[in-house]
């Protein structure tokens, strides 16, 4: 701490030099592969013509954004995207945490390990494959509806009925990803100081109390970071999944920004429009992340990054 009292910025920098060197390689790579290409963002304000190149294409200002927002369907599409994505973010955080806690209670190591390995499997199947399987499973004569039939419930058109379609999207996404997402919470659980449990035990606290007072607080930093970072996906509702499952019957409830851009792209292959939409999504995510960073820092006195 004596360095600060001397007040010399330069010597502070020299003392910190090793720290800068630890970070520098990553920064250099980011500059080359992420920041340099960001020059391409100007495409969003141009009517890009290959013949004229990046610097001579005509400027159109906010035309592409106007097109996105004045499009008759755009409100619906943006709302769908937001709704589906945020439900997924919440479900994909809450359920893996719950699952990690339940798994944490298991003492039988073989069982614990096998369950964990098995729930991790669906992550490795692509939506093209799962799309085909789900179409069969959820059809009117499929397994899901047969099961409902035994319970005396009339069959549900999961993929053809708007509200059920959203439900299906979220449930199937959770089912595919929760096992994989659980891993990070399990890793965090290993960091919980075991002596805290022992102390609580002596105080006579039950398992539920221990979970509430020891385990969850220990997880909170990781939860906050993951929630915040996943805000970056607030307008990514999962193109691959929806593209492989949607159909005209559920356009109203299931069409999202990415599928919309895909269809427009098929018609005119415009990179400018795609860039503009990408920029819009980035700005929204950025605002949300800044807000949640500030909230955590100001009110929770907690640094996310």
């Amino acid at each position: 701490m004596s360095v600060r009292t001397e007040g010399k910025k330069q010597s502070r920098f020299i003392k910190d030099l090793p720290i800068h060197l630890f970070i520098l390689p990553s920064i250099i790579l980011l500059l080359i592969f992420n920041y340099m290409p960001m020059a391409g963002i100007i495409l969003a304000f141009q009517d890009y013509k290959p013949r004229l190149g990046l610097f001579h294409s005509p400027w159109v200002g906010l035309e592409h954004f106007r097109y996105l927002f004045t499009y008759p369907d755009s409100k619906q599409v943006i709302w769908n995207t937001f709704l589906i994505a945020s439900l997924k973010i919440v479900a994909n955080t809450v359920i893996p945490i719950g699952f990690a806690l339940l798994l944490n209670e298991i003492r039988l190591l073989v069982f614990k390990r096998s369950v964990q390995t098995l729930v991790y499997l669906p992550h490795f199947l692509s939506w093209v494959i799962l799309g085909g399987i789900l179409t069969d499973l959820l059809s009117n004569k499929g397994l899901a509806n047969q099961a409902l039939g035994w319970l005396g419930i009339p069959s549900i058109y999961f993929l053809g009925d708007g509200d059920w379609f959203r439900f299906t999207l979220i449930v199937s996404d959770v089912w595919k990803e929760f096992g994989f997402s659980t891993i990070v919470y399990l890793a965090a659980l290993t960091g919980v100081n075991q002596s805290l449990y022992e102390a609580a035990e002596i105080d006579g606290a039950g398992r539920w109390k221990q979970t509430l007072n020891i385990t969850l607080p220990a997880l909170i930093p990781v939860i906050v970071v993951i929630m915040t970072l996943s805000l970056g996906n607030i307008l990514n509702a999962g193109f691959d999944q929806i593209f492989n499952l949607y159909n005209p019957l559920v356009y109203r409830e299931g069409d999202i920004i990415d599928t919309f851009v895909y269809r427009v792209g098929l018609m005119n292959g415009s990179f400018s429009f795609a860039t503009a939409v990408g920029l819009f999504k980035s700005v929204v995510s950025f605002i949300l992340i800044v807000v949640s960073y500030t909230i955590a820092y100001r009110w929770g006195n907690y640094r996310i990054f």
Partner: peptide
């Protein structure tokens, strides 16, 4: 290029 996406979607949705 500009409008057929919307029209196509409208058509498929209405018909179905």
């Amino acid at each position: 290029s500009k409008k057929s996406e919307l029209l196509k979607k409208m058509e498929n949705e209405t018909f179905l």
